[in-house]
Design a binder for these strands. Structure first.
Length: 497
RNA sequence: GGUCGCGUGGCCGAGCGGUUAGGCUGAGGUCUGCAAAACCUCCUACAGCGGUUCAAAUCCGCUCGCGACCUCCA
C-alpha cells in the first residue's frame, strides 16, 4: 500500500491523498460505452487511462473490484425533450437488426479493441438491460423519498425538490438556482415540471422496441439510473472511485450523484476521476461530431487523416505519454514519434531482461552511479503517485533506460552497481513497463529460432569478412522491420524504430 | 450568454515559485568494413502586457487566441 498516492478529485477540485474507505479493498466504477457503433481513439484513451489506474492500484497491493458497465438501453439521442430516440434502437432500425444484435456486435468490437490495446478486463462488466429490476427499485425508492414524481407513465427526478436538501451541480460546479432559472423559460416539455428534471423511467411509445413492465406501465429506464443501480449493486452505496470521461461530468455524473443522494442519502463515490478528451485539429473527437477515427482504422491505417497505420501498442504509448487530465491532440507526427519511442521502450525491455550480473565476478560499487539509478527508479513512482502521471513516469523510464542500454552495450560494467540496485533496476523497469503501463512486446514474427539461425550465419559471414553476404542478411532483417545490432562481442537483433 | 479549463522550444508533451522533464526531429562526436543500434554533447522554450517576490513558465490583474460543458458523446 502506498500513502503517497495522490489523486485529483473532481468533487473537491484538488489533489487528495488516496485513502480507501475500507483498505485494502478498493471499489472502482467507470462508465463504459453505449454500444451502438465502433469504438474510437477517445474510447481507447479513457479505457487505457483507467486500466493504468486499475493496474497501479493492484500493483500497490489493493484488492480492487473494478466495475465497468455496458450501456445497452436507455441512452437517447436527445435527453431533454421527449423527442429523443434510443441510440441502440435507432441503429437497429437502420441496419434491420434486433437491438440486442446491435449490442452484441459493438460489444464484441469494443472488447476486440481493448484486447489489442492490452486493457485488462474489469472484475465485473454489467449491462444495463440485465439490471432492469434494480433500476425500477431505485426509481421506486426515490419516488417514496419524495424526490421524484410520476407523470404520464414516466418518472422524473424533481430537481427543485431535490435542491431543498442537496446541491444539484456540486460535482460539475454548477449553481442549482442558475440551472433552474436558465431553463424555466422552456415550457411545454411534456410532463416535466422543470426542464432540468431528468427521467428515471420513461414510458415506451408504441413503436419503442425495448420495453419492460414497471409499476408505471411499460417503459424503459432513464440513462443515468443504470449506473446508480449497477454501481451500488456491486460496490455498495458508497465506494472509492467513480470514473469516466470529462464529458460525462454533466449531466450524467451529476445526475448519478443526485440519484444516490435521493435514494440513499449519500454521494456514491469518495473520489471522482475524469479523463480529458482526445482532440483532432483542436476539437474534441466524438461520434456525434463525426470527426472520429475508429480504433480499427488506426490499426490498419485506413482513414483520410492517417498517413500510415499505427499499432495498438503505439496507440497505447501515445495516450500514456500525456497526463490523463489534459487534452491530447491527434496528429500523424505525434503518432510517429510515439511509435519510435514505444519501440525504444520495448527494445529496452528485451535488453533489461537479458542483463545479469555474474556471481563469480566481484562487485565494485560505483556509489555515484548506484545512487543515480536508485533515484531514477524512485522517480518512476513519483510520477505515478502524483495523480497517475504516466507522462512523468515515462520520462523517468527513459532516463533509466539510458543506464540500462549502457550496461547492455557493455559501455558500463554491470558489476559497478550493487546486487540490490541491479535487482531494483530490473524490477522497476519491467514492472512499470509491463505491469503498470501495460506495454508489451508486439511480436512481428514468431519464428525466433529462424532469426537465431540467421544471426549465426551473419556472425560467420562477418568473421570471414564476407561483406556482401553480411549486407544481404541485414537487408532481409530490414525487410521484416528488424535490425541487427552489432557489439564487440555479440550479435543481437531488435525492432527497427 | 453562463460555468470551467487551456495557451511551453520545429512537433508532441511533463512541470505549476528557485533544480536538465522526456520523446520525436535536426547538428556534432564515440563505436563500426560501411552502417545500424547504443552512448555522449549541442539546439535552453514557456501567448502578450503589467504587477507581487530576493527569485515567476509556475502567484495576481488585464489583453489576445483556443477549447470543453450547459441535448447526446470516453
Amino acid at each position: 500500500m502506498n500513502a503517497n498516492l495522490k489523486v485529483y478529485n473532481t468533487l473537491s477540485r484538488k489533489k487528495e491523498v488516496f485513502e480507501p474507505l475500507n483498505a485494502p479493498f478498493v471499489g472502482m466504477y467507470v462508465c463504459g460505452p453505449t454500444v451502438y457503433s465502433d469504438p474510437h481513439l477517445g474510447h481507447a484513451r479513457s479505457n487505457i487511462n483507467f486500466d493504468v489506474i486499475f493496474r497501479y492500484l493492484t500493483y500497490l497491493g489493493y484488492k480492487v473490484r473494478y466495475v465497468r458497465n455496458i450501456t445497452d438501453v436507455g441512452h437517447l439521442t436527445d435527453e431533454v425533450s421527449d423527442a429523443g430516440e434510443d441510440k441502440i434502437q435507432k441503429k437497429a432500425k437502420l441496419e434491420k437488426l434486433e437491438p440486442m444484435e446491435v449490442v452484441q456486435q459493438y460489444t464484441n468490437s469494443f472488447h476486440q479493441m481493448l484486447k489489442k490495446i492490452n486493457v485488462l478486463p474489469p472484475s465485473i462488466e454489467p449491462r444495463a438491460s440485465g439490471h432492469i429490476p434494480e433500476q425500477i427499485k431505485i426509481t421506486n425508492e426515490i419516488l417514496q423519498n419524495g424526490f421524484a414524481y410520476e407523470s404520464n407513465g414516466s418518472v422524473y427526478l424533481d430537481i427543485e425538490k431535490y435542491a431543498t436538501r442537496y446541491a444539484y451541480g456540486e460535482l460539475s460546479g454548477r449553481n442549482t438556482e442558475d440551472l433552474l432559472e436558465g431553463t424555466r423559460a422552456l415550457e411545454g416539455q411534456e410532463g416535466k415540471k422543470n426542464a432540468m428534471d431528468f427521467a428515471l423511467w420513461k414510458k415506451a411509445s408504441p413503436e419503442h422496441l425495448m420495453r419492460w413492465d414497471s409499476p408505471w406501465g411499460e417503459g424503459f429506464p432513464g440513462w443515468h439510473v443504470e449506473c446508480t443501480a449497477m454501481s451500488t449493486k456491486y460496490l455498495g452505496k458508497q465506494f472509492d472511485i467513480h470514473g469516466g470521461g470529462m464529458d460525462l461530468q454533466f449531466p450524467h455524473h451529476e445526475s448519478e450523484v443526485a440519484q444516490a443522494n435521493a435514494c440513499f442519502g449519500c454521494n456514491p463515490a469518495k473520489y471522482w476521476l475524469h479523463n480529458n478528451m482526445v482532440t483532432i485539429n483542436g476539437q474534441k473527437m466524438a461520434r456525434s461530431l463525426g470527426n472520429f477515427i475508429a480504433a480499427e482504422q488506426l490499426f490498419i491505417g485506413e482513414h483520410p487523416l492517417l498517413e500510415r497505420p499505427y499499432s495498438p501498442m503505439t496507440v497505447r504509448f501515445f495516450i500514456l505519454q500525456a497526463q490523463y487530465r489534459g487534452t491530447l491532440d491527434f496528429s500523424n507526427e505525434a503518432l510517429i514519434a510515439a511509435a519510435k519511442a514505444y519501440k525504444k521502450i520495448i527494445n529496452g525491455l528485451k535488453a533489461v531482461k537479458k542483463l545479469a550480473q555474474d556471481p563469480e565476478k566481484p562487485i565494485a560499487t560505483n556509489e555515484a552511479l548506484n545512487e543515480e539509478i536508485v533515484k531514477l527508479c524512485e522517480d518512476c513512482f513519483t510520477g505515478l503517485n502524483d495523480d497517475f502521471n504516466t507522462a512523468a513516469a515515462i520520462a523517468s523510464l527513459f532516463n533509466l533506460l539510458k543506464k540500462i542500454n549502457s550496461f547492455s552495450t557493455l559501455a558500463t560494467d554491470v558489476h559497478t552497481i550493487s546486487i540490490d540496485t541491479f535487482a531494483q533496476m530490473q524490477k522497476t523497469y519491467i514492472d512499470v513497463v509491463e505491469n503498470i503501463l501495460g506495454l508489451v512486446e508486439e511480436k512481428i514474427t514468431d519464428s525466433d529460432g529462424f532469426i537465431h539461425n540467421l544471426l549465426e550465419l551473419y556472425s560467420e559471414a562477418k568473421a570471414q569478412k564476407d561483406y556482401p553476404k553480411v549486407d544481404k542478411i541485414r537487408a532481409y532483417f530490414k525487410a521484416e522491420g528488424l535490425l541487427i545490432k552489432d557489439s564487440k562481442t555479440t550479435v543481437d537483433w531488435q525492432y527497427e524504430e
